[in-house]
Design a protein around this nucleic acid. Sequence first.
DNA 1: TTCTGTAGTCATATTTTTTTGACTAATTGA
DNA 2: TCAATTAGTCAAAAAAATATGACTACAGAA
Lengths: 105, 105
Amino acid sequence: MTTENKEEKESGCPAEGLLKLLSGKWKPQIFLLAVDGPIRFNGLLRDMKGSNKQSIAVALRELEEFGLLDKEVIKLKPLHIEYNLSEKGKSLIPVFRQLESFFEK
Amino acid sequence: MTTENKEEKESGCPAEGLLKLLSGKWKPQIFLLAVDGPIRFNGLLRDMKGSNKQSIAVALRELEEFGLLDKEVIKLKPLHIEYNLSEKGKSLIPVFRQLESFFEK
DNA sequence: TTCTGTAGTCATATTTTTTTGACTAATTGA
DNA sequence: TCAATTAGTCAAAAAAATATGACTACAGAA
């Protein structure tokens, strides 16, 4: 496993890893919230009814590790952390639009 | 649950159900194989190393229920069943292409 | 009529994902 | 200094997804 990247493995389907990542519980919601502006840990916890710390922490970490979210420490007023869509993340917006438009017909 | 459709629930993200469906194990591979032509139960079982009957049966059923695959009984020679991409399913091909192209940059 | 290939189902077991609840640690306001 | 808000971690439990192995049923070939 040293010289491999995570996206391919042996499945033959390049999209598989990305699909898996995006389909995790809370991830699509987090992604869509991030489209509208910076998101924060406790904000998500409040906004997404039924969610929990652990799941949000894992989701944010994985989305960040995958390069879809940028994590930024805001050294101001209440000193907090913001997550923003990265360029890579933004490039995924049209994909979501396409997925959504799938139902509208 | 009587007047609701499966796609939305309370999540607010329309793409969520579709993402979940497509990310199930074996599903992306099955979908991609179906792009190249009709697929069959035992063929998948042979082609996808490490797979198993149960998982393939579930995957095919869910893909069919979602309307991405059409199931057809072929009343010929060896009498078998074929699954083909439906129109709905075909409309998803560009989405996969977009997901794949995500890595090539 | 027995064997092979077709396409599964079913109950159970294992594995993975998600949730729960307790805990940490720094910062800020009163 | 006490309490609240920030953003988490950790171990364990619960829930969901996936795999295993036994079984069914039909058709066709030998």
